[in-house]
Structures are given as C-alpha cells and as structure tokens.
Design a protein around this nucleic acid. Sequence first.
DNA 1: TCGGAAATGATCGACGTATATCAAAAAATG
DNA 2: CATTTTTTGATATACGTCGATCATTTCCGA
Lengths: 353, 353
Amino acid sequence: MSGPTLSDVAEAAGVSYATADRVINKRGNVAQKSIDKVRDAVERLGYVRNVAAANLSRRRVYRLAFLIPTGSNAFFSRVRDHIIQSADHLSADSISVRIVDVSAFSVEGLKDSIVDLAGSELDGVAIVGLQSRLLEQPLAELRARGVAVIGLVSDLPVEFRSAYIGIDNKVAGRTAARMTGLAHRGRAGAIQTFVGSMEARDHAERLQGFRDVIAADFPDLTVLDPILTKDDPAVLCKSAANALQSGASVTAFYNVGAGNVGLIEAISTSPGARPFCVVHELVAHSKQALIDNHIDLVIDQRPDVEVNRAFALLRALIDDRELPPMPDLMPTIYVRDNLPADTLNDAMEVQIR
Amino acid sequence: MSGPTLSDVAEAAGVSYATADRVINKRGNVAQKSIDKVRDAVERLGYVRNVAAANLSRRRVYRLAFLIPTGSNAFFSRVRDHIIQSADHLSADSISVRIVDVSAFSVEGLKDSIVDLAGSELDGVAIVGLQSRLLEQPLAELRARGVAVIGLVSDLPVEFRSAYIGIDNKVAGRTAARMTGLAHRGRAGAIQTFVGSMEARDHAERLQGFRDVIAADFPDLTVLDPILTKDDPAVLCKSAANALQSGASVTAFYNVGAGNVGLIEAISTSPGARPFCVVHELVAHSKQALIDNHIDLVIDQRPDVEVNRAFALLRALIDDRELPPMPDLMPTIYVRDNLPADTLNDAMEVQIR
DNA sequence: TCGGAAATGATCGACGTATATCAAAAAATG
DNA sequence: CATTTTTTGATATACGTCGATCATTTCCGA
C-alpha cells in the first residue's frame, strides 16, 4: 500500500542498505557503478523518502525566520499576525519560527539583518526584500550555508533567492484600472493617483499597470500625475482634500501606496458626492471605510494566503521535495459585501495575547 | 527542543507508560483517578502527540473520498481536477483519495452513493451535498462508523456533518449586486437575472443577496424577474438574445447559475453595445469571455482553495487535532486583468494524462 | 477474608529512516 | 605481489508512537 522502503531499493539494486543509504544521503565514498544501480532502482520502484520517518529519526526541527519591516504599517502587522498564528499551529510539526524586525525600506538595515542571521542556525528564511546589489553578498553566504531563501511580498535580487511569493503588482494596477474604468462606463473623467515613492518598485509597477489599461481600454479617462505622499497619511489627507475642493473635475482616486487613513479622513470630512475610490490592502481602517461607503474598492494581496504559501514552500525547499499544488496568488478585489469576517479582529487578538 | 513525549507525561503523572497510553488512546480499563492524573500532566507539560510518529507506527493511510456530481458542468470538472492534482502530491503523506461520481442534483442518487460508501473502509469523506431528510439516515450510519463527514460547495443537513466548506452564497449575490451598482454609478437601469432553478438553495440565496443590495443601495436600478434556465445553455442563449433585442431597456445581465456558454454566445453574436454582465465561476469559457470583453465580471468560489481546505480539514478531523488557520473563503471577483494564468490549462493537462 | 475482576506496570517488536561503527572485500598503488 | 586506499556489507541504536502480551497489584463484593 504505502510505497517501497529504502530496504526495498537496496535489495532491488543488489546492494546493501548501507550503500543505498550512502547514495541517498550523499555521504560519499561510493563507486559510480553503485550510485547508478541505486538511482536506477529508485526510479524503477518509484521510491520516495518518507519525510516523516526521516524527521523523526533525526529529530529534525525546521528553523525558519521571517524578515519583516517594522513600523506602523498596518499591512505588515497583518503579515506578522498571520505568521504568529500559523507558527502556533506549526509547532506541532516541529517548526520553529522567528520574526526579525527590519527597519523599513532601508537597504542598509536589511543587509545588516541578513548578516545577523549568520549567527543563528537556520534552515530557511523568507524576506520582504529590496532590489539592491548590496544584498547579494550576504544572501549568497546564507545560501552557501544551506539556508533556503525566498522573497516575500517584495522580491530580492532574482539570482539570490529560490522563489518569490507575492502578487504581480502590474496586475494589481491593471485590476484597479479595470474597475475604475467600469465604474465610469462611458462617461469621461479624471483620476487622481497617489504614490508613496516612485523608487518603490511595487508602487511604480502598479501605476504602470493602471496607466496601461486606462490608455488601452478607457480613452475617455485621464490619469492625472501622481501626488507623492511618502505613504504619509497627513500628506494624503491634505492633497486629497485639495483635489476634492478643486471643483468636480476629479472623478476617481487611486492610491497606489499606503497611508489610507489620511485619504479616508479627507473623504469622510468632505461634503457632497465623492469620487470613485480605489486603494490597496485590506486592513482595519480600509475595511471600515468600505463599510462606511467612504471608498469603493480595496485591492488586496491576501497576506494570509501568502504566509501559508511561504511555509509550504520553505518546507518543500528544505526537504528537497516537489512543491505541492498551491492556489494562485492573484490580487483580490474587496467591496463592502465580500469582506472576510475576521480579517483583523482575530489577528488583533493574537497580537494582544 | 521538541515537546515532551508520552513517556514524559507518564512520568510526570506518576503512572506507567502503558497507563498513559491507555488514557491517550482511550483503550478503557483505566481508573478515573489515573485518567485525571494523566490529563493533568498533559495539560501541565503541554503534550501534543506526535502524529507523524503515530502514523508511522500504525502504518496509517488516510482513506478519503469525494462525492462530486457528474455531468458536463465545467465547475465540477474544475473541482475534480484540483482533487486529482492534490491527491497526486498527498500520496506522499499516505493519503489515498477516491472520487465518486454522483448523478447530478438527484437526492436519490446521492443517497445511494453514500450508502455505497459503507462497502469500503474509509476515514473521511467530502460531499457536495443536498438538503434532504433522505440523507440523514445514511450519513448518521457513516459517522457512527467513525468516518469524518464534511459538506463541500453545497451543504448537507447541518446536524449530520462536521463542517461545511463553501462560500456564503448570499454574500456572492451581494457582491455581484455591488459591482453591478457601481458600474451604473447613478444612472438608472434594469437588470435581467437568470437562475437555474429556484429550488437550488445556492441559486435562491445568490438572488436574494443580489436583490437586497440593489434595493438598499441602488434605488435607481430595477431587478427584473429571473428567467428560469435549468442551467441549459440553449435556454440562456435564446432568452438572452431576446432581452438584447427588446430595446435598450436592459442595462445589465446577472446569471446566478450555470450555462454561461449560451449567454456568451448570445452576447458575442449580438451587434452593438451590450449590457454590463456578471456571471459565476471561472472556467474555460467564462475566462475566455472576460478576455474577449463579452462579459465584465466573474464571481468565483476558488475551488482550488476549497479543495485544499477540505483535505486539511479532513485530516484534522480524523486526527482529532485542532484546525490549522485557514484563509477565509470569500467570493473572489475576477476581471480580465487579474486572471490566474493556469486555471484551466494546467488542470486540463492533468485531466488528459 | 477470600476470590475474582479491574487496573496497572513492564516490556517487546514493529514503522522507515538516520547515523555510526567495524570488519570484510575489492580496487588501486607501487 | 604486498600494501594501502576505497568501497562495501553487516549490524546496532535511536526517534515517538502503537498495539500487543503477561505478570502483578489493587479493588470490590459476597
């Protein structure tokens, strides 16, 4: 019923268990001839290592780390909460997780944190990355020590990680544009966009995707040049208020970055009809704003799904197994009617505990 | 590092390993006093039984079954494909899966299939259910034999299953309404709705949710009485073509049920502007229709996520463990820009193999 | 208080793998 | 051919749990 064991393989290969083991676990001191025989038998019998038994035997503990930016950013506290919550349940599978706080969006800070990882024994790490050559050296060293490295939410230099988990931000921007276009349905309009920083790759990509779709499919709409916010709610509040007062010319808002508290503040205190409004990431205040009808749509990247996926992926990489099939990561559209019940209530409880 | 073992528990409780084992595995013939001591020690030490070791020892194979309606329904072939694909990778975890074809939407057929399950040894089963008292008896018998039973996509009688995995169809209908409303933005309009059958609970609920939101938040829109289609593409094609010709009065289509091939056919062959168009379930043709701009939105219930969740849930139930945290199941909105790359290409390959 | 029933303890051999040791065989070296 | 080196085989112990068996102790009722 359950597949062949290593003993079966050894027998089929005509070698001893010890030799088969030497081949499987790459212990060296094996003749090429024997290696071939074992490999062949593995193939023929369809042998797959019983990971559970192996881990039991070697008392394996998967030591994982997550490098997450600090700060008040609500999205990353959501990520953090999901990691903690998952880790809680994964400890039963002998997985230990450490969350490392990284100073937000500082290449130097991230580099230091990666270098620091060298101190502790690790099997795998998921990093909210940045694109910088500065990171290449420390990442290479990590991987040389056998640590599985993946990028999370924001990618690392491609050659220096095994995989990336996150949405395609161009797709996210395109989706926002599609919805904005549909909401205008033929009518002309002007869309005020906001970005945190054009240096942030995700912001730039979202804006690009947004512009592409509007240009291609909604010729009656104009995309106004983005206002630079540095993700600061105060800046957003002020500039949004400004735009709201400057007559009825603006028919939609699209905030590519964070700091939505400010945008919502401006909208909720401004009288009269408001523009169609799209923002990113479902967190406590954006959820509330949907419910209160202050905004129309939230494009979300489901950090819960991403974290789940990170764990599965790291384990597979560490065990050198095939990847299990995993649901695709697509930007998810929320309106006030398909809100998850517990996005932040539950997560917050975890945080408080 | 890794938690206490049962030996530790026995020692802490001041009983022998054998007694602790008797308590943990409910073998009976244990004094209440001993039970309490062991339970107490488990609590104190935070013992969790090592499922991997246990399964290794007893050569456990999780024997699961899925009862899925047959027929040409594209949604269920998608479900089927995901089950097959997952099962492929789960065989490494000694999980064996059987898919049982059930004649679609026939209570009698479903009942027979459930009764038939009694023949084979099973640990858990996920059933695309129906609401009928006829099912209660056979379900009760299944569960009496220790089989974990969950409802999938469409629920079973509540008292006779351990859990239900599926979306809230009222929420799905509300979401469709919200998007339709946004797309009209102030303009008046009339929405032609289509249902397969008002007896189908999911259809009725979607329509209800849809009506609720339109009535509450979009007073300028009228929901026309639904056209009964029996999910038959031919019926949909004809009635949609009819609606399209009867002047510009209809500004939107909402198909609650299946048979979208027909709807798309009518739209694509009709000249001039088309109404705003929302359907359910992302499958090959609805995806293509999005790309071709024949429809605007697809509300999807992510069968891949649901199947994943079903596996996790069944295992947890069978092992009598706590549930791992799982992403919420919310209706997902697809437009032509956030389409998953592989929804059906990959799945179809699996089918062909 | 005796006998039988109930409860407990002690211990063993699986499960499939990892890791180690030691001896034996085969191959390479001069 | 003798000697070293490389490669192999045989075997043991451990991981944490399950499912046994068998002997011993404790409990309870008559």
